[in-house]
Every structure is written in C-alpha cells, then in structure tokens.
Amino acid sequence: MRAVPLSDRCGLRLIGEVDLSTWAVLEAELTPVLESGEDVHLELTELRFIDARGATILAMAAQRLDGARRLVLHNPPVVLTRLLDVLWPDAPIETARS
C-alpha cells in the first residue's frame, strides 16, 4: 500500500492493499493528517484490500477526531464496508460515493 496526499483537501489517496506487511505504513501516513486540525478525507477507489487490523486503524483514527472533525471515506471497497459493519458498526465514519 502507498498513500498520496490529496491536492484539494486534507487527506490521502490509498493505493494497493493493507495487510500485515503494510499496517505500519498506514499508521505512519495517517498520523500527520489526523494532527492537521481539519476534516480527514480518504479516497479509496484504488484500495484493493484491507484486513481487520487495517479497518481497526481507521476506526480508531475516527475516534481520535473526537466528534469535532469528520473522517470521510470516499468510494471504500466492499471489503472495508463489510469489515466496518461487522467490527465497528458505531465508529463515527462517514462514507461518500462519487
């Protein structure tokens, strides 16, 4: 997995697959955007796979925003939607499709 900063707002485009070998990359890439003080957008059209730990990293990131800011997932893959439905149904995550 690799992450590219979004050009028009605070957030990242995630490309590839999140699993055991890329958890640390995801966490490291998210840290600065979570500390930005703005809503966080993740463009996920090119995210091909993510596992339970990866979904948990996103859910916990959303909880760190503490209701004051939003975490918005754009075009999440089905696997992520399914993971969040099962493991984190109450996580404060918004989903947008375009």
Partner: peptide, 17 residues
C-alpha cells in the same frame, strides 16, 4: 468471495504472526 478472502487473510496473518 469477500467473506472468504477476509477470513483466509486473518487466519493466514495469525499463522505467520
């Protein structure tokens, strides 16, 4: 297939972790 992919990945992750 999505469920299978998720489940296999989790068990395989534990196997090597």
């Amino acid at each position: 297939l999505i469920d299978l992919e998720m489940a296999v990945n989790e068990v395989a992750t534990n196997a090597v972790a």
